[in-house]
Nucleic acid binder design. Structure first.
Length: 261
DNA sequence: AGTACCACCTGACGGC
DNA sequence: TGCCGTCAGGTGGTAC
């Protein structure tokens, strides 16, 4: 699931639970989730240290250990973090476990193992080397509008392009386009300035609201697409049957009436 | 440069 | 019940 709002919730969760506790041990249950670092090195760099602060860029979460040392969490489609008292709970798909000196663990969960954990010296440098665009909550209007105006492909693809704007995935792209009353295949370079402004506004408010509602569709008030984003559902605004279309290999849900081309 | 497709993984679900 | 195809909220590589 994890897109920007979900990862922001993981960040808040980690801030509230996992900072400043000494790490007693690290257990790598599945080495496949480690990228560019061995289980041995990870353990050596973490044991006796603690997570001091976190930051987020797009769908990536960074936890600072010390100078020149950041742990990078990426969650893929099925990742999450959970903090709980050691052995108090049986959690499935735990791939890496951090044992704190206070008797609690932070675990990295990843059912499909499409996410990765890395260890990098500088968060900023890592973000730059991946050529990610500005975080969707930080991008300014000028840069956003330029990216949209220059794109010939479907607007949904542009919203999800991490090199242009970091943090929006399949689900929130659908919600943002629904709020903007834009068909997912609308070409960016065909959009009027008014429509681009409106889309920009909905990127910001859509993501901020999702964070307020803890990225849980169950908390979304009426008039939002997410809780209805499944086969055969009706538009929460006009009642029309929602439709789907493949955009860049992903399923886009939209209302054919509210989001007419 | 921009876009499409596949591979990476596991599991859930529907049809037969 | 069991098997099989399809699909799932992400990303990176390759091929046009």
């Amino acid at each position: 699931m994890p897109e920007l709002p979900d990862v922001e919730i993981f960040k808040k969760y980690m801030d509230a639970t996992s900072l400043h506790h000494k790490i007693n041990d690290v257990a790598v249950i599945e080495t496949k989730v480690l990228e560019g670092v061995s289980a041995r090195k990870l353990r050596a760099r973490l044991v006796d240290r603690s997570f001091e602060s976190t930051r987020r860029h797009g769908k990536y979460l960074f936890a600072r250990l010390e100078e020149r040392s950041w742990l990078v969490f990426h969650f893929g489609m099925t990742g999450a973090l959970k903090y709980y008292k050691t052995e108090s709970d049986h959690v499935k798909y735990v791939r890496v476990r951090f044992f704190f000196s206070n008797g609690y663990d932070l675990v990295y969960i990843s059912q499909r193992m499409l996410g990765r954990i890395r260890l990098v010296p500088f968060a900023e440098e890592f973000i730059g080397s991946n050529e990610w665009g500005p975080d969707a909550l930080a991008i300014d209007y000028g840069r956003f509008a330029e990216a949209v105006r220059k794109s010939r492909g479907p607007i949904k693809t542009t919203l999800m392009n991490q090199k242009l704007i970091a943090g929006i995935g399949n689900i929130y792209a659908d919600e943002i386009l629904f709020q903007s009353r834009l068909h997912p295949t609308t070409p960016g370079n065909k959009m009027k300035p008014q429509a681009i402004e409106n889309l920009f506004h909905n990127v910001k408010t859509g993501l901020k609201q999702a964070i307020q509602w803890r990225a849980d569709p169950g908390n979304f008030p009426k008039g939002h697409l997410l809780p209805h984003r499944n086969q055969g559902a009706d538009c929460p605004v006009c009642g029309q049957k929602l439709k789907t279309v493949k955009v860049a290999g992903r399923t886009a849900y939209f209302c054919p009436r509210c989001q007419a081309r």
